[in-house]
Design a protein around this nucleic acid. Structure first.
Ligand SMILES: [Mn+2]
Ligand SMILES: [Mn+2]
Ligand SMILES: [Zn+2]
Ligand SMILES: [Zn+2]
Lengths: 147, 147
DNA sequence: AACGATAATGAAAATCGTTTTCAATTATAA
DNA sequence: TTATAATTGAAAACGATTTTCATTATCGTT
C-alpha cells in the first residue's frame, strides 16, 4: 500500500533498517481504519510475520510516533491506541460501535479560543477536539442491539 | 469547604460510610485547582490523615467517579488525573505550565458537528473539547524559562 | 451508651501493561 | 563476502493498579 511504502521510506531515510518485523507492523498500522493497541497490532502483524515479538511492536510504534507518522488516540476505553497521523489541522470522528476513525477539517474555532482565553486570563496555545458517534454501517446495528 | 461537604453528603446518601480516609481524600480533590493523580491525592491527603493507604485513594476516586462527582482528565503527560466534574455542558482550559484548570462554557458547535457528521455518514453523539495554554500567572514565567 | 452486622481499611501479594537487559541474529555499507 | 552495528525476541524487571485478607471502625439498632 502507498502509505505503508512511504513510512518504510521515511524509516530508511532516518537511518533505520528495514526488517521483516517492521514491515509487518507498518503494514498493519498504516492500513487500519481503527486505532489499534500494541497487542492488536501484534496479533494482526503476526499473521504476516509469525516470529514477531510484542517488544518489537512497542519499539516500532515508538519510532513511528517520533517520526510523526502515527499518533496516540485517546478514548473512553483507553488511551494506548494508534492511528496514522493527521494531515495538517484535522480532528478525529470515531464510531462508538466499531471504532472506525475518520479525520475531518474545516473547523475554525479561533474566535471561541480567543474569547475563552480572555475570559480566564489564559493564552490558548493548543486544543483537542474529538467527535464520537455512529458510522453509517453501525447506525442500524445499534438499534438492533437495543431491541 | 462547600463542595467537599456536598460530596460527603452524596456518599452518605448512596449508602457509603463516612470515614477519616474518605474525608481526607474528598477534601483534597474537591478543593484542587489542578487535576491530581492517585499518588498526588495520596501525598496531599496524608497530611490530614497520615494512616491513609494508597489503595483507599484508588477506591475512593472510583466511587466519586461513579457518583459523577469527579472526572478523569486526559493530558499529554497522562490520563490518570482527576478533577471535580464539570457542571452541565462545560469544557476544560488547562495551563501547560502549572496545570491550573478552569471550566468554560458557551461553546455552540452543533452546526459543525452536523456538517462533519453528514460529510462522513456519521451521527455525532458526543464530543471532547479541551484547550491548553498559559494562565495569567504563568505567561511571564514561561518567557523567563526560555531566556 | 453498648452492641453487632458489615462496610471499610491498609499491608501484602497478585496482576497487567510496558520497559529494560542481553545474547543471538540480521541488514547494510564497504 | 565480510565486518559492523542495529535489531531482534526471550526473559527479567518495573511501575501502576487491583485483589486478597485479616483487622478495624462506622452506624443503625438496642
Ligand atoms: Mn481545530
Ligand atoms: Mn461543547
Ligand atoms: Zn487519554
Ligand atoms: Zn499556569
Amino acid at each position: 500500500m502507498a502509505e505503508s511504502q512511504d513510512w518504510l521510506t521515511q524509516l530508511k531515510a532516518h537511518g533505520y533498517r528495514l526488517t521483516g518485523a517492521r514491515r509487518a507492523v507498518v503494514q498493519v498500522v498504516a492500513s487500519s481504519a481503527r486505532a489499534l493497541t500494541p497487542v492488536e497490532v501484534y496479533d494482526a502483524a503476526r499473521t504476516a510475520y509469525p516470529a514477531l515479538g510484542l517488544v518489537t511492536v512497542y519499539r516500532t510504534l515508538e519510532k513511528l510516533e517520533e517520526l510523526g507518522l502515527i499518533q496516540r488516540v485517546h478514548q473512553e476505553q483507553g488511551c494506548n491506541a494508534y492511528l496514522p497521523h493527521a494531515q495538517g489541522h484535522q480532528h478525529l470522528l470515531i464510531c462508538q460501535r466499531c471504532g472506525r476513525a475518520v479525520y475531518f477539517d474545516g473547523d475554525d474555532l479561533t474566535a471561541l479560543f480567543a474569547r475563552v482565553g480572555d475570559e480566564h486570563g489564559f493564552v490558548v496555545r493548543e486544543h483537542w477536539l474529538q467527535l464520537f458517534g455512529l458510522c453509517a454501517k453501525c447506525q442500524p446495528e445499534v438499534n438492533r442491539d437495543v431491541s
